[in-house]
Amino acid sequence: MNKSRNKWGWSLLAVLLAFSVVLSACGQGKTQGDASQGEGGQAAGGELAGKKIALIMQLNIGTFSSQYIEGVKEQAEKLGGKVTVFASDNDLAKMASNLDAAINQKFDGILIDHGTAEALEAGVKKAVEKNIPVVAFDADLKVPGVTVLQQNDKKLAELSLEQLAKDIGGKGNIVKIWVAGFAPMERRQVAYEAFRAKYPDIKEVAAFGAATQNTALDTQAQMEAILTKYPNKGDITAVWASWDEFAKGAARAIQQAGRTEIKIYGIDMSDEDLQIIQDPNFSWVASAAVDPKDIGKVQVRYLYHKFKGEQTPDVVELDPSFVTRDALPKDKQISTAELSQYVKGWGGSEQGYTDWLRALEKK
């Protein structure tokens, strides 16, 4: 009798175990179905909503930076994320510390704006090891798994320099405003050296530049000193400014000195820059640039690709547009939001967009 009961008990236990295995398999099948649905963007919203994103910036000055931040925040918020900006005041040690803080505070993802490999590589590797995705902009980083956005700096420099050479007939005296120590600047310098070799009759009579908390104001003071050193019309034919903060300072110095025969050719574009270029009282006449809001938006999109576990390129290059005063309306002031009406290729970049990202935005 006891043997019979034991045999019956073991049989019942076996049936129950088999039933639980079936239920478990059904549950797994449902999870896998949801995941595959997520690949098309249907279930991705739940996994990707509410992401906390750190934006680590080397230098946050001027309207270009403010519009770049605006683009980052706008795109992240559309995707349900929240951005916290860590400003480093051009202090690389502080930038490295900010990166460590973002890792320790367990942000879901990290965006980096400029910086050097020496300052950031250790922190970025630490983030990757902790499965925190990283997307950088204009930082010379080569860490496996990290995507770096960069403007086509060679083309930016070439567009502005070739227009300068064309306008001055391939000869004259120029001032270069440039600063070392930034990856995009180093790439622009390579193009500048090629330009010098190509146009031997264009002479560099002065070169200066420093990235400070008051770059435009400091550049203005330095440009005023250059104008004092070269006081005669014809002493300086043109200025090449490798950054819009440099161009703004130079434009104000030249305008105040009444030397607007000296034309300025720059790089980067913001609403403030556009106002100066449109104003005939200033001599900044052209600039090669990528829409700063687009840069921020594209950077966020690639971060979300990483959130979703997708492979992303090591380097994403952003192609510039070329903005000249002649292409802009004479009867009204416009903003960069309207610039696409007058400049081909400006704004509205679709880089990094996918159907599932658009679906997530709708959620």
Rank of each mutant, 00 (worst) to 15 (best):
N2L: 14
S11C: 14
L12Q: 09
L12S: 08
A18M: 14
V22G: 13
G29C: 07
G33R: 10
D34S: 11
A35C: 07
E39S: 08
A44R: 10
A44Q: 07
G45A: 14
G46M: 06
L48W: 10
A49K: 14
L55G: 14
K73V: 15
E74V: 12
A76Y: 06
E77L: 08
N90I: 07
N90L: 08
N104H: 02
Q105L: 02
K106A: 12
D113H: 15
D113C: 10
T116F: 02
A117K: 08
L120D: 04
K126G: 11
A127M: 02
A127L: 03
D138V: 07
D138E: 12
A139I: 03
V143C: 04
V146K: 08
T147N: 05
K154Q: 08
L161F: 15
D167I: 00
G170Q: 08
I177F: 09
V190K: 08
A197N: 00
K198R: 06
K203V: 02
L217F: 09
D218I: 13
Q220W: 11
A221M: 12
T228M: 14
N232S: 11
I236R: 03
T237Q: 11
D244H: 15
F246Q: 11
K248D: 13
A251I: 15
I254W: 06
Q256V: 14
K263Y: 00
D271P: 01
I276W: 01
N281A: 15
S287V: 15
I295P: 10
I295G: 10
K297V: 07
Y302R: 03
L303H: 01
H305D: 05
H305E: 10
E310K: 07
Q311A: 05
D319T: 11
S321M: 00
R325A: 00
D326I: 03
K330A: 04
D331I: 01
K332T: 01
I334N: 00
I334L: 02
I334Y: 03
L339N: 01
S340H: 01
K344N: 03
G345I: 05
G347L: 03
W356E: 00
L360F: 00
E361L: 06
